[in-house]
Design a protein around this nucleic acid. Structure first.
Length: 205
DNA sequence: TGCCAGGCCCTCTTTAGGGCCTT
């Protein structure tokens, strides 16, 4: 697969449209099934962190207060990933924050997102749930660190992605899985996975 | 003061409702 960047945000809440901001970002570059580079930073957006979020993530007001400004971190991580295609677990969430935080530094996203959760729902419909942690356990992948910290979650989403690529190659006898194919799979009705991959096979032979 | 997401996907559907998933 071509190089992709798997990203994960920790935030003060669920919606940048209602004033929520990022508190931490991680991005890992995945190439040939391996993580080849990592970026991770807490970021200070000047927001109080709700107690519930501190309980969930372990990220406190004190940690964020001593972190670099959000604008500096977003410039760094945007430069780090460049125009590499993006992947996130439940990408609709990370896409909202990526676009919102970039807009604050007057930058615009240059690439598409693919969603590891939507692909997993199609590839592993029998999984007990499609939360990242459950899928890591379901696929017997190693836990990379504390859940709900950006780098650990990005690393685990990356390993899940690599596992799913291998599964697609094995199950459908294709040699390569592109970012475009992931987006094709996630955009199709769940029952149409076989149809999608059959057509992909035809384009590669 | 108190409110507060939204896209996906199933079904007892499509003139809708509710669970899942992210923090």
């Amino acid at each position: 697969m071509e190089r992709v960047a798997v990203i994960d945000f920790e935030t003060t809440g669920l919606s940048p449209g209602h004033g929520d901001r990022a508190t931490e970002i991680a991005a890992v570059l995945v190439e040939d099934g391996k993580v080849v580079a990592r970026y991770q930073s807490l970021m200070n957006a000047g927001m109080r962190i709700p107690a519930f979020i501190t309980g969930l993530t372990g990220i406190s007001d004190a940690m964020v207060r001593s972190a670099p400004p959000a604008a500096k971190v977003m410039r760094e991580v945007a430069n780090f990933v460049g125009d590499t295609p993006l992947v996130a677990h439940n990408a609709s969430f990370d896409k909202k924050f990526w676009d919102a935080e970039l807009a604050l530094i007057e930058r615009v996203r240059a690439q598409e997102f693919a969603c590891s959760m939507l692909v997993a729902r199609r590839l592993f419909p029998q999984a007990p749930s499609h939360k990242l942690g459950v899928l890591i356990e379901f696929t017997s992948l190693p836990v990379a660190g504390a859940y709900h910290r950006a780098l650990a979650d990005a690393e685990m989403a990356a390993s899940l992605l690599v596992r799913m690529e291998a599964e697609i190659c094995r199950r459908y006898q294709v040699a390569d899985v592109t970012h475009a194919l992931l987006r094709d799979i996630q955009g199709r009705p769940k029952h149409a996975l076989d149809d999608c991959l059959e057509r992909y096979q035809q384009t590669r032979t």
